[in-house]
Design a protein around this nucleic acid. Structure first.
Ligand code: FES
Ligand code: FES
Lengths: 165, 165
DNA sequence: ATAAACAGTACTCTTTTGGTACTGTTTAAG
DNA sequence: CTTAAACAGTACCAAAAGAGTACTGTTTAT
């Protein structure tokens, strides 16, 4: 698709947001999966990756589980994305790789894409997990305008969703 | 991948940018392909789609070709993306579809994603084709910060790129 | 009439992503 | 000290999306 974060990342924000509601509790992967209606192995995978980036802290053994690695205020969406995509960052191929398409003009294009990337990235950095759960109406300098296009993708709750037609 | 525009869209900006340099000329698809080092059928495809959205105007018959559908200043990157992705817009599944994951909290998350979407979209709207070719140093309210991470994707010039190792 | 160029459709191949299975390690509880 | 609940890691598979190509038709200056 396009300009979409991957489902895994989406799941990540879901899970983390849920955990942020009870900063003290310890959540088992299976528990979270059941609560959120996701596949257990999938949630496990996500949590493991998040752990590698210190966004969650894990306690092993019986009665183990996961907890946020640090206060929700200190976890930005950008960090979640970075963790789960394991991908550089940049909307275009060449907004990173120097000397890909240097054939005719001295690529002013790349510079522009990089600027765009900057804006996008900052948007992601400006929203924290804490913002996700609590009101916190507006982000710093930007007033949300109603989206122009849209609305009508799929559904997220993949498993056992029948009926309805 | 992630937060990436599709290659087709990337090609689109390339092509359009090139055309913007000579607002009067008429470009044949094969001509453009040769100049930019892309596959002829691919360029054709892109141009056709762009035509459907009036970003380019086509002249059929012998000596035909393509030209910008309107002044470069009036073509934003957002429009190019919209045209070539034929996709709503929104970084997440549910930042659009109402009632996907309405199981526990009354989804404040979605609202937040929509705000993020707004910022991203505006970033794309604020850059025009004209900006791509001419200096035009800064976008309105945002000062470009150097990208944090990165740099090291692939190469765009797909065909016949050998050697180098 | 012809050839250059756009228009449209349909198909195939490759890559990416999402998801699952399996095997190992840790640790409280009995 | 045995056991079971839970995390850790790897590897694999299947489905979907992307990208590219081929083919057939239509338009029009020469
Ligand atoms: S370097 Fe990427 S468009 Fe030129
Ligand atoms: S509606 Fe999408 S996260 Fe709740």
């Amino acid at each position: 698709m396009m300009l979409r974060i991957s489902k895994l990342t989406d799941y990540g924000t879901l899970v983390l947001t849920h955990m942020a509601n009870f900063p003290d509790r310890l959540f088992s992967a299976t528990d979270l999966a059941a609560t959120l209606g996701l596949g257990a192995p999938t949630v496990s995978k996500v949590l493991k990756t998040l752990g590698r980036h210190d966004l969650v802290r894990s306690v092993r053994g019986l009665h183990g589980g996961y907890a946020l690695g640090r206060p929700a205020v200190q976890i930005s969406v950008a960090q979640i994305v970075d963790a789960l995509e394991e991908q550089p960052f940049g909307l275009t191929e060449c907004s990173a790789s120097a000397g890909s398409c240097d054939f005719e003009h001295d690529c002013r294009i790349r510079a522009n894409w990089q600027r765009i990337n900057g804006v996008v990235r900052r948007a992601l950095e400006d929203v924290s997990l804490a913002d996700m759960v609590s009101p916190q109406p507006m982000v710093a300098g930007s007033d949300a305008r109603p989206i122009t296009g849209p609305q009508s993708i799929k559904g997220r709750v993949a498993p056992d969703q029948e009926s309805a037609r």
